[in-house]
């Protein structure tokens, strides 16, 4: 790989590349620093980081856009669990009732928190869409069949984790918002872990973490939610050198872009 050529190529399309990289000298110094000190496998990653710094999205409107995106997903989850808890689909008298209520309360708290944050930043929060949790008939028994309910819950939680992860970088300039987003992100992961255990208790072949791009027996309807999770190379480091391929994929959760997430949730929005 010839780094100088790459930068020269970019210069053809973007004459200001060196300015964006601070200066040619700084850019090359940065590269020399990383190239000299990181393991060779990590070099493409370091270079990517350098370019991301130069071309990374600026803050301002980007932050509120991410918050409104997050709010839309939280509206979806909050209404899903609120309706689910009220529907009687969760077997009465079991620990599942408490668990679903806990998750419901968190998702509703996230809605309030994100709306308050947007208001505090001087931006009007997006309105709640109208949801169809049957996804146009794909899940007709969503609030009458407990297994269907848990399957969709799992897909929502795992996808929520991926959605926050995919856009955290756009919040990097705002410490408080980034930190809060990370605090929501890990709550969604805790939910996902528990929902997966609830499904396992119902006989599903599933673990608290995501193996490869396995849907945990839910199938094609949610495959897009899991595609990409099978990655076993991180920042140029082959994780299968250290652990099995399954463990390598499980040990890192993968992001989804906004477009991928919006395509996934689109059937649920009327």
């Amino acid at each position: 790989m010839n780094i100088k050529n790459i930068i020269t190529e970019i210069e053809k399309f973007d004459p200001e590349v060196y300015d964006r990289l601070d200066s040619r000298r700084t850019a090359m110094q940065q590269f020399a620093f990383w190239g000299g000190r990181l393991a060779l496998a990590a070099v493409p990653f370091a270079l990517g980081g350098m370019f991301k710094k130069a071309y990374g999205q600026s803050a301002g409107s980007g932050i509120t856009a991410v918050l409104n995106y997050a709010l839309t997903l939280e509206y979806l989850e909050a209404e899903f669990y609120t309706k689910g808890a009220a529907s009687g689909v969760v077997p009465a008298g079991t620990p599942a009732v408490g668990a679903i209520n806990t998750i419901r309360d968190h998702e509703n708290a996230h809605v309030v928190f994100l709306k308050n944050t947007l208001n505090a930043m001087g931006t009007t929060p997006v309105s709640k869409p109208t949801f169809d949790f049957t996804a146009g008939g794909a899940f007709p028994d969503i609030f009458t069949n407990y297994d269907t309910f848990l399957a969709v819950a799992q897909a929502f939680e795992d996808t929520g984790v991926r959605a926050y992860k995919g856009r955290a970088g756009e919040l990097i300039s705002n410490h408080a918002v980034l930190t809060a987003a990370l605090q929501i992100h890990s709550v969604e992961a805790r939910h996902a872990s528990h929902i997966r255990q609830m499904r396992k208790a119902r006989g599903a072949n599933v673990k608290p973490w995501i193996t490869g791009k396995d849907t945990g027996g839910i199938g094609a309807a949610v495959q897009a939610n899991y595609n990409g999770e099978e990655l076993t190379t991180q920042a140029g480091v082959d994780i299968t050198k250290f652990v099995s391929a399954n463990a390598a994929s499980e040990s890192f959760d993968e992001p989804l872009t906004a477009d991928q997430v919006l395509a996934i949730v689109k059937p649920f929005i009327v």
């Binding site: 991301k52 992860k165 890990s186 709550v187």
Partner: peptide
């Protein structure tokens, strides 16, 4: 941001 994403990939597994 690349390091931030990596930290994000790991923290959700820790949360699980």
């Amino acid at each position: 941001p690349g390091y931030l994403l990596l930290a994000g990939k790991i923290v959700s597994v820790e949360a699980r």
